[in-house]
Each structure stands twice: as C-alpha cells, then as structure tokens.
Amino acid sequence: MAERLTRREQQERNRVRLLLAAERVFAREGITKGTLDDVAREAGLTKGAVYSNFDGKEDLITQVIRHRSDGPEQTRFAGILADGGLSPAERVDAWGREWVRVASSGERYDFAWVLIEFILLGRHQPAVRAQLAELYADSARDSAEYIRRLVPEGSGLAGLPDTSVTRLFNALDLGVALVNMADPAGAPLDLYRVALRLLAGLPPEPEAPEPAAPERDA
C-alpha cells in the first residue's frame, strides 16, 4: 500500500529532493552553468516546484548549505560530544575521525565544491557576500556551544571568544577540504584530525601505550 502523505509532508519531501538535486547539479555543472531547469529535471519535479520552495538560484544554494549544516552528520558529531565515556583527548580524536569519514563521502565532496564556488562568486556579487556572512554568523552562533565542549580546558583556544573559535573551525574544515581537492596525495584529509589535535593543545598523534613489562619466570 502506497504511503499517504499530508500536503505539508509532500512539500517537505519535494524540498529535500530539490536540495539534493541542486547539490549534484551545481557540483557537476557549476553554479553559473547549472540552471533551475536542470535542478527540477534532476529531482524529477517541475520548475514550478523549485519556485514554490525557493526564491531563486541564490536562495536555493543558500538552503543547500544550511541543509548540510543541519543534516544527519551533525547528529553524529553531537553524539560524540554527549559520550561521557570519552576523555577530552578521545573526544577530539573521535570528532576528527568522523570528519574524515564524512569528508570522504561522495555527497560531502559535491557539497564542498558548491560551497567553494559560492564563496568565489561572492567576490563580485555583494548580495552573495551578504548571504555568506549571514550563514557564517548563524553557524558561529549555533555551533559555539558544542565547539566549546570539544575544546579541552587549558588549551590555547579556551581563552578566545566563541565567534573566533567557531570561525577557526570553519576555516580548518574548508581549508583542508580545499587543498585536498587540489592535491589529494600531498594533503590527505587526515590532516584535519592532526590539526584538530594541535588546536586542542594535544600532540599531533596519540601517545603510544607503554609496552607491558615481560613476565618473569617464577
């Protein structure tokens, strides 16, 4: 029996389909070349469905970025912070490994291309720059609390304002992704995990456990 959805549920489902389709189209074709017709066709919907959910291309791209920022992967990061069985150093390592896993996925790769191109577009379009500034301001406000929980007490970051800390994390996220796209072999994604440890005041790699003392014959 087919699932029956309310009008609101169907609209939300279509909205998500359009967001995911837009991410694929703009990553594949580029923001300038990709069109709203392309997005509608990719999603299997009409162009009218695009305009009933978004004000235009720039609004659609902005919502793609917001959708990723609020997506399921953020729930997994929140779970790491909520795990009371992890030490501060273990929490940093778990966060770094999860970032590498997510960044290695195909969808996240598409998203990174879209975000980077949107940032470059903002160089010549003040309206896009304003949207990006609003996005990053919202991100700094929304993520400040859990970023603080990630930073161990006594680290160099502990004395910085929340906005500065979250912007540093934004820069690390985007910077490692960008150089990895240009030089995957020379700049592996695991650099994020290493840099995260350094920012948190930890050594680049976890200390190896001391070898167990050999048993002596009685």
Rank of each mutant, 00 (worst) to 15 (best):
M1K: 04
A2G: 04
R4G: 04
V16H: 03
R17Y: 04
L18E: 01
A21W: 09
E23Q: 12
E29V: 01
E29D: 13
G30P: 02
T35N: 05
L36C: 09
L36W: 04
D38A: 15
D38W: 05
V39H: 02
A43S: 06
G44Q: 08
G44P: 01
A49K: 01
V50L: 09
Y51T: 12
F54A: 12
E58I: 00
E58W: 03
D59T: 06
L60W: 02
I61M: 06
Q63N: 13
R66H: 07
H67N: 09
H67V: 03
S69R: 05
S69G: 14
D70R: 13
G71K: 05
Q74L: 14
Q74C: 08
I80M: 01
A82F: 00
A82M: 02
G84T: 14
G84S: 09
G85A: 12
G85L: 05
G85C: 03
L86Q: 08
P88W: 02
E90C: 08
V92D: 02
W95M: 08
W95L: 04
R97P: 00
W99C: 01
R101M: 08
R101W: 07
R101F: 06
V102K: 02
G106Q: 10
E107M: 06
R108V: 07
Y109S: 15
F111G: 02
A112E: 11
W113F: 13
V114G: 04
L115G: 00
L115P: 00
I116R: 03
E117W: 02
F118T: 04
I119A: 15
L120C: 12
G122A: 13
H124F: 10
Q125E: 15
Q125G: 01
A127M: 09
V128F: 04
V128S: 04
R129V: 08
R129S: 14
A133K: 10
A137K: 09
D138K: 08
R141Q: 12
D142W: 03
D142T: 11
S143E: 15
I147N: 07
I147A: 12
I147R: 07
I147F: 10
P152H: 07
P152E: 11
L157M: 15
G159Y: 00
L160I: 11
T163Q: 11
T163M: 07
F169E: 02
F169C: 02
F169D: 00
N170D: 14
N170I: 14
A171V: 14
L172R: 06
D173N: 14
D173L: 10
L174W: 11
L174T: 11
G175N: 05
V179Y: 07
M181V: 14
A182E: 13
D183N: 11
D183F: 13
P184L: 10
P184Q: 10
A185P: 01
A187W: 06
L191G: 07
L191H: 12
V194D: 09
V194L: 12
V194F: 04
V194N: 04
A195V: 02
A195Y: 03
L196E: 02
L196S: 03
P203K: 09
P204F: 08
A208I: 09
A213V: 13
P214I: 12
P214S: 10
R216D: 06
D217P: 03
A218Y: 08
